[in-house]
């Protein structure tokens, strides 16, 4: 079965660890859809959030191989129903003065922010889960999206599980 998976990988915060993790995916023939890395509440640890598609069985094999990396401490294949996920996207959209208000309206409807106004463009900062961002991108496309930058998805499992894990 093919599925998109969101892997939350807790690693030691050391040089080179990210490249060990990502090269493993490349080596095993997986294309990473999105990747986000940052330090956790414990400064010696980083969390890598990876969104990747592929056969469930071969993904299980990659997760096992990932576990073998000495710097990897914990891997969670997050359940889409039991996680909170967010991504931040910057859209630079064509917005000549006569159509500017339409774009601003879209930004407002999605509760996003206009962070830069140019002569013929607007840049919008949008945060949210994947579906909302995709819907917004769809609407903005009509105006012409000039550039997009994404942070990649970050995610955490919902409260209950974390509490259980600690208990």
């Amino acid at each position: 079965m093919q599925h998109k998976h969101t892997l939350s990988v807790l690693v030691e915060n050391k040089p080179g660890v990210l490249s060990r993790v990502t090269s493993l995916f490349a080596r095993r023939g997986f294309n990473i859809d999105s990747l986000a890395v940052g330090v956790t509440e414990d400064p010696t640890l980083s969390r890598i959030t990876i969104v990747v598609g592929g056969e469930d069985t071969s993904l299980e094999q990659v997760a096992k191989q990932l576990h073998k990396l000495i710097n990897v401490i914990k891997i969670q294949d997050l359940d889409p129903h039991e996680m909170v996920d967010r991504e931040l996207v910057l859209f630079k959209v064509n917005a000549p003065p006569d159509r500017r208000h339409e774009v601003i309206e879209i930004a407002n409807v999605f509760r996003t922010k206009v962070v830069d106004v140019g002569k013929n463009t607007l840049t919008i900062e949008a945060t949210g889960a994947g579906e909302k961002l995709a819907a917004m991108e769809d609407l903005l496309r009509a105006y012409g999206i000039k550039e997009v930058a994404r942070t990649g998805r970050i995610a955490l499992s919902r409260g209950l599980r974390e509490g259980q894990a600690q208990g």
């Binding site: 060990r20 090269s23 080596r27 073998k68 990396l69 000495i70």
Partner: peptide, 14 residues
């Protein structure tokens, strides 16, 4: 050499 040997070592260090 650490980059080169990532896929063929159990672990490596610089």
């Amino acid at each position: 050499i650490t980059g080169i040997t990532i896929p063929i070592t159990k672990h490596n260090y610089l």
